[in-house]
Design a protein around this nucleic acid. Structure first.
Length: 945
RNA sequence: GCGGAUGUGGUGAAAUUGGUAGACACGCCAGACUUAGGAUCUGGUGCCGCGAGGCUUGGGGGUUCGAGUCCCUCCAUCCGCACCA
């Protein structure tokens, strides 16, 4: 019997299912290991060969850890709320729940074919009310909490109220700038609605009338990380800033902790750096520049040392001070400029970054030290959303300020002496200052500190840390998401668990379930579809919140739910989270660098602060798998006769025959380049008959082939996508070669973190290997081959070398080299004609994480009743690997000149003697003075002359 | 522009600490068995050279007995951020 992967795989899948081999308990004496994949959004397109790459890697690692004696949690679920299902519902009227369920079924079928060891009894779906009950519950915790900056942790809002009642807010700096200080008496005198308005400015989940990204195309607002290059990440629709009443998460309060803890995480530098940049911490000072009238401009600067180089100031065009300070003469120009800025979309602004525009307000600020008059301008290069929305411009030290000064003929004060050449700003942070009063002659780094000190002493500013990170928008005007457990009573939002709310008890319980709707069209005035269902919206106390939560809500804590997925009294029991702790290994793509991964970290920290968890970082180690790209194929269609297809190399000759000028652009001008389905192409040779049948329009196609009769396509690497006809479905690969071959081939392709195009060709090599492995156990003629003979030294050496190497390789995620080692081992054992049980048993265990079905079959053929997954990863016996002697290359000054066989335990002195006794070496050394002999044990010998 | 990474045969790639560069596989070449091969097996395969030998890890320089690996510099490609004060 040849290696029959189809029946083997079918049989063992059934066995695993029936015996519930992968079901994992929260009670075990074994050490725990939590290995997690980023759960997928179940899209309608299904999986292509790129998707399972990370899943296979984590599956191998999970199986390996099991063999190493760990209790391994390795779950899977679905990020089931999301925009595409709702967009689809808008087009077809199909309920998102229905399409989502269908997609999940399809995903599950595809995943099951690959043989993963997921504990499906722990599956989670974010759209399941039993799940989002706890997403809503966490929202309640966020709402009922504030961030204590002194203790650097979230605390219950009750404790804040107690502090306010006792001492007001003078010791509790408000995260929102416009909150005046009050004392205890004042607090108590405030009416209830005013107290609630103040508390809202402290809550970690808060309602605010603030600028958000509005996307008309999607009919909803988006979070910062969902806007890429001025368009929506999904769909690529334009976005605009709009002031709206929206829920936010106060993630900015966690900026410093999110930043600091990055150092403790085992993530790639690229990933950490992305988060650092997104958080964007910068140190500097906030300085107040008084104007001639009663106003003053607050600026943030990272270069307080350059304060004497301030030649002008710039406000963001939207800055609230602009109307107040603009002079009568400049009024018209300023209004005109503001209108111009507003007319420009985010995308235009980004694409024309280098243009210098601006307008003088007519106002002058007074330099706090020199008293100099400083003109105040507005310009779009100053962003309203960063710092204070105003800058002190130092053209001598900043490129943009310099360009602005040159463009508007503003005189530049040189504060850097010879460093500044009048042509370009000097933005280096080294050198001494000139023209700077009390900072003259100081090194820049020293001057910076001196300037901050002077600023603070003069009472015109303070040392300040600034972040780029913004609070995260948490409202979406959509249907297919978690409803908020919020009801508005007298226009004030209350959570449904608050006693102040006058509602019957049955409205107080979670989850607040998503109602059925007739239409997925948006509600009135930019509201979501839920606003249309008055019977759901209206409660005895007032209307419900009609927005839903964003996609990242459910995915910010799902890794916790897997620990205790069926718990109905908590998001996860404390015993479960204490047992499983952090995710030991998280595998997924880089696309979630600043979204999901940041939000998950924040939520974990909040739950930790509030005492619900014993750890405050969710993902200890993160591995990013690369993308598997598609390899597209193209045919060339003649534009003058759309029935004629010309093979790649024949195009120029074809044009010549038709008397067409073959200039530079000729090929592009005369041929359409069409994607052709990769399955219709063998390498680059087109299957002509298949092509004709592919689409009706090609049925009568004519071909101008190469001289050998083949039609040759061109190839390009692109993203794998349906529209490019380059999608390879894992189902097809599994059907043809089996899941085990598919798994191994994806890993054999190269390091998991590198992106590469899919190429089915090389899969034969891996498949051959599995067939070879099979033949170590079975012979087609003679049947079962395994004997109980004593293994030879050579056989033991081969298998133990492999145990050692593959164990190390799996630990460091070098699955490709581990597979290479298997191939070497099987080749060696085949050459030795080894069919011995004592050798094949450990080999079966080693191979099990990679080719679980085959390993299971072989394991039972070896005579075991239990699953190979319950076996123990074999230990390395170093004595079998150690060599008696070794051939050393002998180099003279680094150049190999001879070879010498020496026992492995040879000492330096013995080596020197042996080397000098060697005839070849003696010949090379003639007439040369020997300096020393370097002996690197097990590696090489080098003679220095 | 800033930040991060990568650069090794025809191809995917190995080389864990500086120690025989190119393991393993694809592809290609030759051969065996075959009616046949897109099956299987064996051998060969970095480049130049008949050969001895020489050259070779993006280019240039450096440290070292010895560099793919460390340092400097330049170039190319990919990813992320981008008027962030």
């Amino acid at each position: 019997m040849e290696y029959n992967f189809q029946s083997i795989e079918q049989q063992w899948k059934k066995y695993w299912n029936e015996k519930e081999i992968y079901k994992i308990s929260n009670n075990s004496d074994k050490p725990k290991c939590y290995i997690l994949d980023m759960f997928p959004y179940p899209s309608g397109a299904g999986l292509h060969v790129g998707h399972p790459l990370g899943y296979i890697a984590s599956d191998i690692y999970a199986r390996y850890k099991r063999l190493k004696g760990y209790n391994v949690l390795h779950p899977m679920g679905y990020d089931a709320f999301g925009l595409p299902a709702e967009q689809y519902a808008l087009e077809t009227g199909q309920h998102p729940a229905v399409t989502t369920k269908e997609n999940i079924t399809r995903y599950r079928e595809q995943l099951d074919k690959i043989g993963f060891c997921y504990d499906w009894s722990r599956e989670v779906r974010t759209s399941d009310p039993r799940y989002y009950k706890w997403t809503q519950w966490i929202f309640l915790q966020l709402f009922h909490s504030w961030y204590d900056r002194q203790q650097q942790k979230a605390r219950p809002i009750k404790e804040l109220i107690a502090i306010f009642s006792a001492e007001g807010n003078q010791n509790i700096l408000c995260p929102e700038a416009d909150q005046p200080v009050f004392n205890a008496a004042a607090w108590q005198s405030f009416p209830a609605h005013e107290q609630r308005a103040i508390l809202m400015k402290y809550r970690l989940a808060y309602l605010s009338h603030a600028e958000v990204w509005w996307c008309e195309g999607l009919g909803t607002v988006l979070a910062n990380d969902e806007v890429v290059n001025g368009v929506s990440e999904r769909g690529g629709f334009p976005v605009v800033k709009k002031k709206m009443n929206q829920w936010f998460l106060r993630i900015t309060e966690y900026a410093d902790r999110l930043l600091g803890a990055l150092d403790t995480l085992d993530w790639s530098d690229a990933m950490k750096e992305m988060q650092r940049n997104w958080i964007g911490k910068s140190n500097g000072a906030q300085v107040r520049f008084a104007l001639a009238n009663e106003h003053a401009i607050e600026v943030f600067t990272t270069r307080p040392d350059t304060i004497f180089g301030v030649d002008f100031m710039v406000l963001a065009p939207e800055h609230e001070l602009v109307p107040a300070i603009t002079t009568r003469e400049q009024q018209e120009a300023v209004t005109q400029y503001q209108t111009y800025v507003q007319s420009r979309s985010e995308r235009e602004r980004i694409s024309e970054v280098k243009q210098v525009t601006g307008c003088f307000t007519g106002a002058y600020a007074i330099h706090p030290f020199s008293g100099k008059q400083i003109p105040v301008w507005i310009s779009e290069y100053v962003l309203a959303g960063y710092g204070t929305g105003a800058i002190m411009a130092v053209p001598a030290g900043d490129d943009r300020d310099h360009a602005f000064a040159k463009h508007f003929n503003i005189l530049v004060t040189n504060i850097f002496g010879d460093h500044y050449n009048g042509e370009n700003a000097y933005s280096d942070k080294q050198g001494t200052l000139t023209n700077s009063d009390f900072l003259n002659g100081l090194e820049i780094s020293v001057a910076s500190e001196a300037a901050i000190k002077a600023i603070e002493e003069a009472g015109i500013g303070v040392r300040k840390v600034n972040y780029k990170l913004r609070d995260a928008g948490f409202s979406r005007q959509r249907y297919w998401g978690e409803p908020f457990p919020i009801i508005y009573q007298d226009n004030i939002p209350y959570t449904i668990d608050e006693p102040e709310l006058n509602i019957p008890d049955d409205l107080r319980t979670l989850p607040v379930t998503l109602p059925e709707v007739d239409s997925y069209r948006p509600g009135p005035e930019g509201q979501g579809p839920l606003a249309n269902i008055s019977e759901w919206v209206d409660t005895p106390a007032g209307p419900r919140e009609t927005n839903t939560m964003p996609g990242y809500a459910g995915s910010s804590w799902y890794f916790l739910r897997y620990m205790d997925p069926h718990n109905d009294t908590a998001f996860a029991g404390r015993a479960a989270t204490d047992y499983w702790q952090q995710v030991d290994l998280y595998v997924g793509g880089t696309e979630h660098a600043v979204g999901h991964l940041l939000y998950s970290r924040m939520w974990t920290k909040v739950l930790y602060d509030l005492g619900h968890l014993s750890f405050d970082e969710p993902f200890k180690k993160l591995v990013n798998q690369g993308m598997i790209q598609g390899s597209s194929r193209f045919v060339y269609r003649y534009k003058n006769d759309r029935n004629v297809f010309v093979s790649q190399e024949q195009r120029t000759a074809f044009l010549e025959r038709n008397n067409i000028n073959t200039g530079k652009q000729a090929l592009e001008n005369n041929f359409d380049k069409l994607h052709v389905d990769v399955s219709l192409v063998d390498g680059v040779a087109l299957n002509i008959e298949g092509f004709k049948q592919w689409k009706p329009e090609f049925a009568t196609a004519q071909f101008i082939p190469e001289p050998d009769g083949q039609y040759i396509c061109t190839a390009e690497v692109e993203k794998m996508s349906k529209s490019k006809y380059n999608v390879v479905n894992p189902d097809d690969i599994v059907a043809q070669y089996g899941a085990d071959t598919f798994r191994m081939y994806e890993m054999f392709l190269g390091p998991i973190d590198v992106s590469k195009p899919w190429d089915t060709k090389g899969i034969e090599g891996v498949h051959r290997f599995l067939k070879k492995l099979w033949r170590l156990y079975y012979d087609v003629q003679q049947g079962w081959q395994v004997t109980n003979d004593e293994p030879s030294a050579e056989e033991l050496r081969s298998i133990h070398k492999t145990i050692k190497k593959t164990g190390e390789d799996i630990e460091r995620f070098a699955f490709n080299t581990a597979i290479s080692q298997f191939m070497i081992c099987v080749n060696e054992l085949t050459a030795l004609n080894c069919h011995k049980h004592a050798v094949l048993e450990p080999l079966t265990i080693l191979i099990a994480p990679f080719a679980p079905h085959l390993a299971e079959e072989l394991w039972h053929q070896l005579g075991y009743e239990t699953s190979v997954l319950d076996a123990v990863f074999p230990a390395v016996e170093e004595t079998y690997i150690a060599e008696q002697s070794k051939k050393y290359p002998v180099a003279i000054n680094g150049k190999t000149r001879a070879e010498l066989e020496l026992p492995t335990d040879t000492t330096q002195e013995q080596v020197e003697q042996a080397v000098l006794a060697d005839a070849t070496v003696q010949k090379w050394l003639e007439g040369k003075a020997l300096k020393r002999i370097i002996y690197v044990k097990g590696r090489m010998i080098n003679i220095v002359v």
